[in-house]
């Protein structure tokens, strides 16, 4: 029998500098649409998408945040209760790569997850389609090194325009968030030594 106990809502936060394509990625993922004309995101936009992950229906609640530094202090309202975080940079814009550390740390600071070391992140290098890659300034190796330094964050190179790797990236973060949640459940269960109420004994291993 399917477990109804676990919540199947995941809150996903998308972060990164202004203009790296956060809104485009989200709209490509949720609506399968691309436009060159998205307006700047002010505050944060909100979309949902349902995905099936290993027979489990999961609702992703995706928050597409504003990239300008001015809006960062207001982020806490959006970050609170987040299950995972997608960091985005533009492979053709060096500054957007250099600021990733700030976005990462600022998120951990403001969201205050219980287990910051293992909190699910992924890194997305967007706009790989631009000018067939000739304007690219951040090599893949550099991005992967950064990911390794942050505790092996999975890395995806995407094109929101061509719908390249977008689904895979979001699916990956959703899976990571579910695994993390599961680990946390086990952790809290052990700590609290409390068995779930009114639930059947799981048959075999719950993993």
């Amino acid at each position: 029998m399917e477990s109804l106990r676990r919540r199947t809502l995941l809150k996903v936060i998308v972060l990164g500098d202004s203009g790296v394509g956060k809104t485009s990625l989200m709209n490509q993922y949720v609506h399968k649409k691309f436009s060159q004309q998205y307006k700047a995101t002010i505050g944060a936009d909100f979309l949902t998408k349902e995905v099936l992950i290993e027979d489990r229906l999961v609702t992703l609640q995706i928050w597409d945040t504003a990239g300008q530094e001015r809006f960062q202090s207001l982020g806490v309202a959006f970050y609170r209760g987040a299950d995972c975080c997608v960091l985005v940079y533009d492979v053709n814009a060096k500054r957007s790569f250099n600021t990733l550390g700030t976005w990462h740390d600022e998120f951990i600071n403001q969201a205050g997850p219980s287990d910051p070391k293992h909190f699910p992140f992924i890194l997305v290098g967007n706009k790989v389609d631009q000018d067939a890659g000739s304007r690219r300034v951040v090599p893949e190796k550099k991005a992967k090194d950064w990911c390794a330094s942050k505790g092996n964050i999975p890395y995806f190179e995407t094109s929101a325009k061509d719908d390249h790797n977008v689904d895979d990236a979001f699916l990956c973060i959703a899976k990571l968030a579910l695994e993390h949640e599961h680990d946390q459940d086990i952790y809290f269960k052990t700590v609290a030594e409390s068995a779930p109420k009114t639930e059947e004994q799981p048959a075999g291993c719950a993993c």
Partner: peptide, 9 residues
Amino acid sequence: QYYAFRWIT
């Protein structure tokens, strides 16, 4: 904060 931030600014 979730909706009126943009309305107002």
